[in-house]
Computed example of a mutant assay.
Amino acid sequence: MRRLTPFVIALVAPGLTAAPALAEIVPLPDVVSAITARVAKGGGVTIAEKSSSRLQALPASDRMVYSAGFSVQVKGRLQLGRGGVIGSDISRRITLNSSLAGQAARDVAAAGDKHVASLIPQTSWHRWISTKGWLYGSGNLFTATLPEGKSWARVKRAAGPDAAYGDLLVNIFEPATLKAFITEKNRKGRGHLATGPTGKKEWQLMYAGVLTFAEMFKLSPTFRAAANGELPDADRGRHLNWAVFVGKDGLPLRVVSFWEVREKVRFFTDVTVTDYIGWSNRAAVAPPPAGEVSSSAGPANLPEADDTIDMLAARPPLG
């Protein structure tokens, strides 16, 4: 593993405060045991997530090359159980960062880029649920595919984490991922004071590192599912920067992932920050009411580009 880049440390931990005296009196938690016990106990956790992405967009004409940006807001909850996340229920919305970005998206969509076209309807809130072996979606992406009276699409077979991962690419509740990430080698210092998810200063311990996409694909079932089970050779060497912040009890406060594509014909960057803001002993994720659900092959005439990692599948912009 390589160390986390200074850029990413500055981005995700601006509130770090050196506190050697505090570090001396706060014993280091056994993070693996704490998270493993929390997963075994079941229940769930509420999450709040923000992603920031940039992509190069070329309109059909030669009049201009746009650099377009968008952000993603996620709120919802995870259900924990044997093996990790067994259900997730999230609401998700994309915001194009400027009128220029909006125009860029429309230009590229009109030129035939269906992945970018799929971003436009997601500027309204969508809800995603993965539970009991299925992924369900509700929102403008599916409106044209649903019969009258139905508001939910049963999209595909999927594991419990599916709805909540794809912007964030690190599932710290997976046993293999947890043990690979939370090691002495990856621990950064002995703790510090920083602003936590609640907005208050609190003691935090940071773990961080870098893995290639190929390493993540081998390690993490959640990563493999987010990549739709395939990882082209061109993407195997891409780097995923990650950071995990835990509190005194060893439970995660914040998880961060950052990755990028910088090529002549493709440009994309993504940083995702997920805060864990409330633990509960009862947090079952239920499927949508059966009477509101219809089977769906996905968005009408569009790829299922419902996560930022799906942008890897996008073809180079049209010029």
Rank of each mutant, 00 (worst) to 15 (best):
P221Q: 09
A225I: 01
E215I: 10
T123K: 01
Q79F: 06
T143E: 08
L80G: 04
P20D: 06
G81V: 03
G237T: 11
N301I: 11
L135E: 02
T123W: 01
H239L: 15
V265Q: 08
A314G: 13
D233T: 15
A305K: 06
I94D: 00
D113F: 10
V116N: 03
V31K: 02
S52T: 15
K132W: 06
A19Y: 15
G83Q: 00
A284W: 05
I86M: 07
Y276K: 04
I277W: 01
F217L: 13
K75P: 02
S138Y: 00
K264T: 08
T123A: 02
R77I: 11
A283M: 14
I172T: 04
K185I: 12
A68Q: 01
L55K: 06
R63I: 12
S53I: 14
L80K: 02
A300H: 11
V261R: 13
A68N: 00
N241P: 03
T183P: 02
R282F: 10
K132M: 08
N281Q: 13
S71Q: 02
G139N: 11
L231E: 04
P232E: 05
L302T: 09
K50L: 12
P147V: 05
L205Q: 15
V116Q: 01
P289W: 02
D113T: 07
P289H: 11
A105N: 07
P175W: 06
S220Q: 12
L100R: 13
R154G: 04
A284V: 15
V108G: 01
V265Y: 09
E263P: 00
F7V: 15
E174V: 06
I182W: 00
K264Q: 14
P221L: 06
K218W: 09
G298P: 05
R82D: 12
A314Q: 15
G87K: 04
P175L: 01
G149Q: 08
R54T: 14
P29L: 09
A18F: 14
R236F: 04
D162C: 04
P27H: 08
Y165H: 07
V244H: 03
A117T: 14
R106P: 01
E174Q: 01
F258Q: 05
P317A: 10
V8R: 05
F245W: 10
K150L: 03
S294Y: 05
A48T: 15
G84N: 07
K185D: 14
K41V: 03
G319D: 14
E260H: 09
A158I: 10
S91M: 11
L80M: 01
Q122T: 06
A111I: 02
L219H: 07
V271K: 08
G81F: 03
R77V: 04
P6W: 10
N301K: 15
W242I: 10
G69W: 03
L193F: 13
A214F: 08
N97F: 07
R82F: 02
G76H: 01
K218Y: 11
D249G: 12
K248S: 13
A68F: 04
